[in-house]
């Protein structure tokens, strides 16, 4: 009895362990968090609440997918947080409580994003300034510029036809616009990353820039494009964030640079580039947001979010490093 137990047990245990080692860490973490939420707050799983959760997660996911291109190509973008603030404040200023200015606001927001992304990319690739320094400098420049432009606090105001993207539902349904936009961004992100030459080149550039260059890839152009994508998706994130929570201060984008990097790292992207995928980044962002919800349900003070975020990114990367070694 005992011997049959042990002989059947070992292979199953081994098989289970082998299976587990193939499952991405982040999926396990995400499931654990979702199960914990189910125990603490079962109402979370009503469709409306769930869609609300996804609405709140949409900005991080969108920004993280942009950041992902930059990180896969081996760089960082620390300027997304302040770019989000800039885009939100500019939108408020351009719209200035007049719904007719919506189109103009979009032109400004995405125009600024493209220019910022281009400048980041060109400084990194043409002047060979490390992206950490470049985007840190850009962060300071954007932060200062928007404070000068608005004299320290947001001016104007955004109208409902702008806010609807961040907080409204499609008419007659419970489906938030933000959710649809998020799905669109994910779809486009997956297509670009995994089904185009550009995507393969991003991997190549991050994995081994010298080999990529020698095989005819224009490394500079790929990296610059990645920075532009990151900036544009930060602008999309800004539209969602501004819609969801309004533009009440010049700190709307604060923390998004590190949150997006955290999400991606949780999703298993190797720093230095070359490895990772969109699914991982999305799961990383969802995990982060789910963790925030869980802490909220448990009644922890808001700042504890940061501590937990810190611990889990260290833990996730440490586990990934351990797995990579064995």
């Amino acid at each position: 009895m005992e011997s049959t137990f042990s002989t059947t047990q070992t292979p199953i245990g081994q098989r289970l362990r082998r299976l587990l080692s193939k499952v991405p860490v982040i999926l396990i973490v995400l499931l654990v968090v979702l199960i914990l939420i189910a125990l603490v707050a079962p109402t979370f799983y009503r469709p409306v609440a769930l869609l609300n959760f996804l609405k709140r997660a949409a900005p991080i996911i969108v920004v993280a997918i942009g950041q992902m291109y930059v990180m896969l190509s081996g760089e960082f973008d620390l300027s997304v947080g302040s770019l989000i603030t800039v885009c939100a404040a500019v939108a408020a200023n351009v719209i200035n409580n007049n719904p007719d200015n919506l189109a103009l606001a979009f032109v400004w927001v995405f125009g600024i994003a493209i220019v910022v992304g281009l400048i980041n990319g060109l400084i990194v690739t043409r002047l060979n300034v490390p992206s950490f320094v470049t985007t840190l400098g850009m962060l300071l420049v954007l932060q200062g510029a928007i404070s000068i432009y608005t004299r320290g606090a947001p001016q104007g105001g955004i109208t409902d036809n702008f806010r609807v993207f961040g907080r409204g539902n499609i008419e007659g349904t419970e489906i938030p616009y933000a959710f649809v936009i998020m799905l669109l961004v994910i779809a486009i992100g997956v297509y670009l990353m995994h089904f185009t030459t550009f995507g393969r080149r991003v991997y190549a550039v991050g994995g081994n820039p010298v080999a990529a260059r020698l095989s005819g890839v224009n490394v500079g152009r790929i990296k610059t494009t990645a920075f532009v994508l990151s900036a544009v998706l930060a602008a999309v994130g800004a539209v969602l964030i501004a819609g969801f929570s309004g533009v009440s201060s010049l700190s709307v984008g604060q923390g998004y640079e590190f949150q997006s990097i955290s999400a991606i790292v949780l999703g298993g992207v190797a720093l230095g580039g070359g490895r990772g995928n969109i699914a991982g980044a999305v799961m990383g962002a969802l995990t982060l947001q789910a963790m925030f919800s869980l802490l909220n349900f448990l009644g922890f003070p808001l700042p504890i979010r940061l501590s937990v975020q810190g611990l889990i990114i260290i833990g996730a990367v440490a586990i990934a490093a351990r797995r990579g070694r064995t």
Binding site: I261, I304, S307, G310, I313, I314
Partner: peptide, 9 residues
């Protein structure tokens, strides 16, 4: 960064 967030929290 993780250490920083932890301390800040």
């Amino acid at each position: 960064l993780g250490m920083s967030l932890f301390i800040q929290g």
